[in-house]
């Protein structure tokens, strides 16, 4: 455990020092990259609750990421043109307020996770992987064919949404906002793992029959975990949309699902800081290799293949040695 703690501390330090250095030398681009790391890590923290704790291999988390993004896009675009979303049965106005958008994004993706989870969790193993993938694709094709919010071309939001007391258009302030949310999510996920719910979920992953014998229904545990997981990934989607001030069906594509999964795996499945390490590594690779070659994804593929075949604990697992994640 000790070595993992040191690694986590070093990672935290790096994530604080790099932006400080970038801020002091006026490199706004690096600040934006760090914000991107934090937001993508947040999506990974969400997936890690289903994947790491619950053992639910969801290949459709892009669905929640996208729903979060579209929640932001729909609310902000209506506020932008001052056109209410609905006038009947009661008036619903768009909004540019981040807290409201986040709440809507989390509720909407939690609801979607409830529906998708209730259907997908009837199955397990390969079926579960394929079905979550298929539902993600369903929403992808739906947004492509839905012209109201840009269809295939996506939709631009001209001004970043507002947060009380902050100027979110200043990169450093938006970065702090993303860091705080990521910190809270990590805290929540650490508490969840140690709470009775998290322990029961871990037990259900290891041996569902035993959990059932002591009177807990694994299905309910998993469904709740899936909903929480979806809500956090949805929040990340809303933030990601705000970072880019742009939404498009790509948020729903299965490459997005694969990438969120790569963050978790590159870092180390079931480890608290795994998604943070993975997202940081992914963005670092994109930044470094993207400059060398247009075909940088080949190297990411080769690295991922290497991690899966030879270094099964991911980055943190390899550095921290043979400790079992999450007991």
């Amino acid at each position: 455990m000790a070595r993992e703690t040191y690694i986590n501390a070093a990672l935290t330090l790096a994530l604080v020092l790099v932006p400080l250095w970038a801020w002091s030398t006026g490199q706004a681009y690096i600040l934006t990259l760090c914000t991107k790391v934090a937001i993508l890590a947040l999506a990974g923290v969400g997936l890690n609750i289903a994947l790491g704790l619950g053992g639910l291999v969801s290949f459709g988390h892009a669905a929640f990421f996208g729903i979060g993004g579209y929640a932001m896009g729909i609310l902000a675009s209506h506020a932008q043109i001052m056109d209410p979303i609905a006038e009947w049965p009661f008036l619903i106005e768009g909004t540019k307020s981040m807290p409201v958008i986040w709440l809507v994004a989390m509720l909407a993706s939690a609801f979607a996770a409830l529906l998708i989870g209730a259907l997908s969790l009837r199955t397990s193993g390969v079926y579960f992987i394929m079905i979550t993938l298929a539902f993600g694709q369903m929403l992808y094709y739906f947004t492509i064919g839905w012209p109201a919010y840009g269809g295939e071309d996506g939709l631009s939001i001209y001004v970043r949404n507002s947060f009380p007391g902050l100027n979110t258009l200043v990169p450093a302030q938006f970065l702090i906002l993303a860091y705080v949310i990521l910190g809270l999510a990590l805290l929540f996920s650490a508490r969840l793992a140690r709470a009775p719910f998290g322990l029961a979920l871990t037990a259900a992953r290891q041996n569902a029959d035993r959990v059932e014998t002591v009177g807990i229904t694994p299905f309910k545990l998993r469904l709740v975990a899936f909903v929480i997981s979806g809500a956090i990934t949805g929040l990340a989607g809303a933030l990601f949309a705000d970072l880019n001030r742009f939404i498009s069906p790509t948020m729903f594509s299965w490459h997005t699902s694969g990438e969120i999964m790569i963050f978790v795996i590159l870092g180390g499945v079931g480890r608290l800081y795994g998604p943070v390490a993975g997202a940081a590594l992914f963005i670092l690779l994109e930044h470094l290799l993207g400059g060398i070659s247009d075909y940088w994804l080949i190297y990411v593929g080769a690295l991922l293949l290497g991690v899966v075949l030879f270094a099964r604990g991911g980055l943190i697992g390899t550095l921290a040695g043979r400790e079992v994640a999450h007991g």
């Binding site: 290949f59 992987i129 999964m261 790569i262 795996i265 080949i298 593929g301 991922l304």
Partner: peptide, 10 residues
Amino acid sequence: VLATFALILI
């Protein structure tokens, strides 16, 4: 899933 996803990228 991960290894074959990596194969797709490659």
